[in-house]
Computed example of a mutant assay.
Amino acid sequence: MNKYNTLPGQLLAFVPRPQFKNLVKSTQADKHCKGFTAWHHFVTMSYAQPANPNVLRSLENSLDSNHSSLYHLGIQKDLKRSTISYANNNRSCVLFEKLFYSILDSSDIL
Rank of each mutant, 00 (worst) to 15 (best):
A87S: 15
S62Y: 00
F96Q: 05
V43S: 05
E60Y: 04
N2Q: 12
K98W: 07
A38E: 03
L104T: 02
E60Q: 15
L99G: 04
S107H: 04
Q28E: 15
L73K: 06
G9A: 13
E60S: 10
L63D: 07
C93Q: 14
H67K: 14
L7D: 07
A87W: 02
S85V: 01
M1G: 15
P50T: 01
K21R: 12
N88F: 02
L104C: 08
K77N: 14
F14N: 07
F14P: 01
R81H: 13
S65V: 09
K80A: 12
A38V: 08
K3C: 10
C33H: 03
Y47P: 00
L95K: 05
M45C: 07
T44G: 02
N52L: 10
Q19K: 13
L70C: 07
Q49W: 07
W39G: 06
L70I: 03
S68M: 06
G74H: 03
S69M: 14
N54Y: 09
S85C: 09
T6Y: 01
N61R: 11
L23V: 03
L23D: 02
S46L: 07
R81A: 06
S62L: 08
Y71E: 07
N90L: 00
G35V: 10
Y101G: 00
S58H: 11
D30C: 04
A48G: 01
A51Q: 11
V94A: 05
S46M: 10
F100Y: 15
Y47A: 05
Y47K: 05
R81L: 13
N61L: 14
C93M: 10
A29K: 04
K98N: 14
C93Y: 06
I84G: 05
V43A: 05
I103N: 12
C93E: 14
C33Q: 11
L70Y: 01
P8E: 10
S68N: 10
C33E: 08
S106L: 09
E60P: 00
T44V: 10
R17V: 09
A51W: 11
S65H: 13
S85T: 01
N90W: 00
G74W: 04
D105N: 09
S85L: 04
G9D: 03
S102R: 12
R91S: 09
F14K: 08
L70E: 08
M45V: 09
N88C: 09
Y101W: 14
Y4W: 06
I103M: 15
Q10P: 00
N66T: 04
S82C: 08
T6F: 01
M1Q: 08
A51N: 03
K31V: 12
A38S: 15
S92L: 01
E60A: 12
Y71M: 10
L11I: 13
Y47Q: 01
Q28Y: 09
L70V: 02
S69Q: 15
G74C: 07
H72P: 01
M1K: 11
A51P: 08
N89H: 11
P53W: 00
D64S: 12
F20G: 04
